[in-house]
């Protein structure tokens, strides 16, 4: 089994479009996991039927028993997240560290498990798809990503699929690091723009930091040929194989509006490039 993660650094470069296309190509030999838990979109294209949702306990949160609180203010003075005042916990600010509960002389404060989201296993045409949704404002998305990947790895081994495909979040922080860790290879979806190039470099730095081999493709490559050339040079310099240049194609946007994988549109230039990408990835020993 090959574990491949699709990331981009910059948001909106086409991670989900590329992931959905690969999944559709590898139908029957792939298990997909959407680790962009903040803004999960893969299911909008692959349209799996999800099973029951499983709660995700992201961490703990302070709870105050007001009948015990003497109003001494010790918790307020100690909390570094400004999350507690006059015995009232502001859940959005609470980091779950438990210092207030440790310090409360009246034992009025307790730490309780906090459900930060839900995850579930679904079935789509291409195969099994794991997805999650983070509740508004919940933290610890990296922990949810790690949990999803663990479950996905277990299921992928059970199903003996060739690919474990992980659609990742933007950025370089906690959820991205959780999505990247433990994969055999990274596919970076680059965008030919000043921002896209800047963010690609940060992502490739992160992959190097983790020692994960990186491959790249450029989406909407013909929209800004000068930047596409710069992305291509940067990949060359870093010895990151550039596997495909996907042309700008209005059909991709139309598919995103309808919720269809672009690969199903045989006559589209982007679909053709994505098909090439899928077969190249299959040829390489990742």
């Amino acid at each position: 089994m090959t574990k491949l993660v699709v990331l981009s650094g910059k948001g909106g470069t086409g991670k989900t479009t590329v992931s959905a296309a690969l999944a559709t190509h590898w139908r029957g030999e792939v298990l997909c996991v959407d680790t962009d838990v903040d803004a999960a979109n893969l299911h909008l294209v692959l349209q799996p039927t999800f099973g029951p949702e499983v709660p995700f306990v992201g961490g703990r949160m302070a709870y105050c028993d007001e009948t015990r609180c003497s109003g001494c203010g010790r918790c307020t003075a100690l909390c570094r997240f400004h999350a507690i005042a006059a015995g009232t916990v502001r859940s959005l600010s609470c980091e779950g560290c438990g210092l207030c509960a440790l310090a409360c002389p009246e034992q009025a404060l307790q730490m309780i498990d906090h459900v930060g989201g839900y995850w579930s296993v679904g079935t789509a045409d291409c195969g099994t798809v794991l997805g999650a949704r983070l509740l508004p404002g919940a933290g610890n998305s990296g922990k949810l990503v790690s949990l999803l990947k663990e479950e996905a790895t277990r299921l992928a081994k059970e199903q003996q699929v060739r690919w474990l495909l992980c659609d990742g979040p933007p950025g370089t922080g906690c959820p991205t690091m959780a999505a990247l860790a433990g994969n055999d290879a990274l596919l970076a979806v680059a965008e030919p723009s000043a921002s896209g190039l800047h963010d690609l470099c940060r992502l490739l730095d992160l992959a190097a930091h983790f020692g994960i081999s990186a491959y790249a493709c450029i989406n909407k490559a013909d929209l800004a040929p000068a930047f596409a050339a710069q992305v291509s040079d940067e990949c060359m310099r870093r010895r990151v194989p550039l596997l495909a240049k996907i042309p700008y194609d209005p059909e991709v946007g139309a598919c995103a509006r309808r919720g269809e994988p672009v690969v199903d549109r045989g006559d589209s230039p982007a679909a053709a490039a994505l098909a090439t990408l899928a077969s190249r990835l299959a040829e390489i020993d990742l």
Partner: peptide, 13 residues
């Protein structure tokens, strides 16, 4: 930042 988790909360609060 993109997303809906702690980074967004920190920026928009």
């Amino acid at each position: 930042p993109p997303g809906t988790s702690c980074a967004l909360i920190a920026a928009a609060d």
